[in-house]
């Protein structure tokens, strides 16, 4: 179960590329599977790359897209759950 208190980071075996459309494509070098992130997902991904805690990423999302805190929290947690499930990120060790 992911919580907003956590920090995760991109898996070292993931190649990420952000396109001029605002989307990001992720390629996992082990599975050779592509994943795409929409504009919101890209913003979250960029913040994950900076090593920000999920709470802070949610806060930034609220500011960028003018969404309710609860909705931003849900978006961040849902995406990170997905990314963890596909081993595209890994928890940052304390």
């Amino acid at each position: 179960m992911v919580t907003l208190a956590q920090t995760v980071r991109p898996h070292p075996d993931v190649v990420d590329t952000t396109l001029d459309t605002g989307e990001t494509v992720l390629l996992h070098l082990d599975s050779k599977t592509y994943y795409s992130l929409n504009l919101t997902g890209t913003q979250i991904w960029q913040d994950l790359k900076q090593g920000l805690p999920l709470q802070e990423i949610s806060r930034r999302l609220q500011a960028r897209f003018e969404v309710e805190p609860e909705r931003a929290d849900r978006s961040v947690l849902a995406l990170v759950e997905d990314l963890l499930q596909h081993q595209l990120v890994q928890p940052l060790e304390a």
Partner: peptide, 25 residues
């Protein structure tokens, strides 16, 4: 990656993978 990079230089495998990602998208 290790085989490709040994012949072509460190990090060059990831460059091809990134390029392939762009082509797919």
């Amino acid at each position: 990656a290790a085989t490709h990079d040994r012949l072509r230089g460190q990090g060059s495998y990831r460059q091809v993978m990134r390029a392939a990602s762009l082509c797919i998208m």
